[in-house]
């Protein structure tokens, strides 16, 4: 009787998905990512999210050149660009958890530097997506004055692509 296999690579289901390259990536730090908080991007995000807070809308369209922006602006602007690539992880990933601690306000015009790190990789057998890898990323975000504005822990679940025939 054959062992159950993963969808694409024929790997035994109880064989670890964590490769030496992945193991080596744990604890590694990536290149800093830099991004400016643009008023126009915040305005577009507020529109996409049907923002109705009069104070936020007034701040976005007001005369203050550096208004405080809602916390979600930071989450949304930094989200995609700050995740480090981890070698060998299956290509598909879904966000499993997100943990943001805000330390100081973020303003329009702030130039944010994110220092990313791969904090941990764990594997899980079973669950909604089957045999999968959970990669925990950590970011420290600081503004142009070196003041920390947020600390983030994000976990991404990676899993092999499903067989189109539905056998996985």
């Amino acid at each position: 009787m054959s062992e159950p296999t993963n969808a694409r690579d024929g790997q035994a289901a109880d064989e670890s998905l964590i490769t030496p390259a992945m193991q080596a990536a744990i604890g590694s730090e990536g290149e800093p990512v830099r991004v400016e908080i643009s008023r126009e991007v915040v305005r577009r995000m507020a529109e996409a999210l049907d923002e109705d807070d009069p104070a936020i809308l007034a701040a976005i369209d007001g005369d203050d050149p550096h208004p405080v922006v809602p916390s979600y602006a930071l989450i949304c602007i930094l989200s995609h660009m700050s995740e480090m690539r981890v070698p060998d992880v299956p290509g598909h990933g879904l966000m499993a958890a997100d943990d943001w601690t805000y330390l100081n306000p973020v303003r329009v015009g702030d130039r944010i530097t994110v220092r990313p790190r791969v904090a941990d990789i764990q594997e899980r057998i079973g669950g909604r997506v089957g045999h999968s890898l959970f990669v925990r990323h950590e970011w420290i975000c600081a503004n142009q004055n070196g003041v920390e504005i947020a600390r983030v822990r994000r976990t991404i679940a990676h899993y092999p692509e499903r067989d189109p025939a539905g056998s996985a």
Partner: peptide, 29 residues
């Protein structure tokens, strides 16, 4: 996921009527 996080933040802020400052938010999908 970041949009769902934003939905929660907006929901909370609406209930608070803009009062308070969000210090931490943690979610699992």
């Amino acid at each position: 996921g970041p949009a769902r996080m934003a939905f929660l933040e907006q929901f909370l802020r609406r209930w608070l009527g803009g009062a308070g400052t969000l210090k931490r938010i943690h979610i699992t999908h």
